[in-house]
């Protein structure tokens, strides 16, 4: 597993002057691997936007380093950064004449000359990006004539055309209705799992992210940022702690979990209670079939530890993240 984004003791905040710098939270040290789909969440004012601005070099961090694909961002030129990281924002952009194809083509700007002339490869990549985002049919339309969901896809296609390993998305679901949200999360999952894109996006939509992302980066004002798989954060009560209110997965609203491509392997889980619910949720999210009676492996919870037993061995894990990583190795 390749480490794609690594934050090393990163301090973010605002500095009105050099002496008077105000850090929003303790230094952040987290990382994500190539192909990960990670959601950044937390209550308003936690500093998500600030972190995004720091990651996209829009503001300077107050301290620490950002590594993308092992390269220190402080040492790279804007042009070099543009090949590592692309961004998708919710800002409405462009005038009434800007076309979808113009916007997506702009993703190639870091790679083309001063006249912005596109070669065959550029065109191919643009076509692919339009295809991946599912908006080939919109290419000739103006941005203004599109719905919010379509615009979002255009910006994603632009990011894809930019051909960067890492994509940052600021609140991509913010203005979308439910069907558009489903389409969006499906697209993000496809991009991360099948096209090896590493995607970090911010969102408030806990239902959506808990059932779909590989990891959550959880933030709250003046609290250290923590990283973990959704079920760990929920089972351990961190999520409640950071948001300040108890969270319950609202299955009735929409079952996002059905979006994962199912695997053929099944896992047997005995037991009832909140912790077991989250264990099952984590497995389903990963695409495993969960059975009460039979399975290739058997899982249970005892003394706050997750116990995995198969025909030969029994192993114990502190967190669901470690457990699911181990299960992934099995199949």
């Amino acid at each position: 597993m390749k480490e794609m984004l690594k934050l090393n003791k990163l301090v973010i905040g605002y500095a009105s002057s050099k002496k008077d710098a105000k850090a929003l939270m303790p230094p952040i040290s987290v990382s994500m691997n190539s192909g990960d789909l990670v959601a950044l969440t937390g209550p308003n004012g936690a500093g998500k936007t600030t972190l995004f601005r720091a990651l996209s070099s829009n503001i300077l961090p107050l301290g620490g380093e950002i590594f993308i694909d092992q390269q220190n961002m402080r040492k790279l030129h804007a042009r070099e950064k543009s090949a590592l990281l692309s961004i998708v924002l919710t800002d409405r952009i462009g005038d009434q004449y800007m076309k979808v194809s113009d916007v997506v083509a702009s993703g190639r700007y870091p790679y083309v000359g001063i006249w912005a002339r596109l070669n065959k490869l550029d065109r191919q990549i643009i076509d692919q990006s339009l295809h991946l985002a599912g908006i080939e049919a919109l290419a000739a339309r103006t941005l203004q004539s599109l719905s919010d969901g379509e615009r979002q896809k255009v910006m994603i296609a632009k990011a894809l055309a930019q051909d960067t390993p890492l994509i940052l998305m600021d609140e991509p679901a913010a203005f979308l209705d439910y069907p558009s949200k489903i389409a969006l999360i499906r697209l993000l999952k496809t991009l991360s799992s099948e096209h090896n894109k590493t995607i970090l996006f911010s969102s408030h939509d806990l239902d959506m992210i808990i059932s779909n992302v590989d990891k959550i980066w959880l933030m709250a004002p003046q609290k250290p940022m923590i990283s973990g798989i959704p079920e760990d954060l929920l089972a351990s009560g961190k999520m409640n702690d950071y948001f300040g209110i108890p969270y319950q997965l609202a299955h009735t609203v929409f079952d996002y979990a059905g979006l994962s491509s199912p695997k053929n392997n099944s896992v047997c889980v005995h037991g009832v209670g909140e912790d077991y619910n989250w264990l099952r949720h984590a497995l389903r999210r990963k695409g495993y079939a969960v059975s009460e009676t039979k399975g290739d492996i058997v899982l249970r919870i005892a003394d706050g530890k997750y116990i995995l037993s198969d025909k030969q061995v029994i192993s114990k894990f502190d967190t669901l993240e470690k457990l699911t990583n181990e299960i992934d190795k099995y199949f």
């Binding site: 070099s57 804007a78 543009s82 961004i87 702009s106 006249w115 632009k158 930019q162």
Partner: peptide, 23 residues
């Protein structure tokens, strides 16, 4: 005329432009 590309990027907004490698 030499600035055409930069101007196209600026039309996308400062943050996109910056992300596309524009100073």
């Amino acid at each position: 005329i030499l600035l055409s590309k930069s101007l196209n990027m600026i039309l996308l907004g400062d943050r996109y432009a910056q992300n596309l490698g524009l100073n």
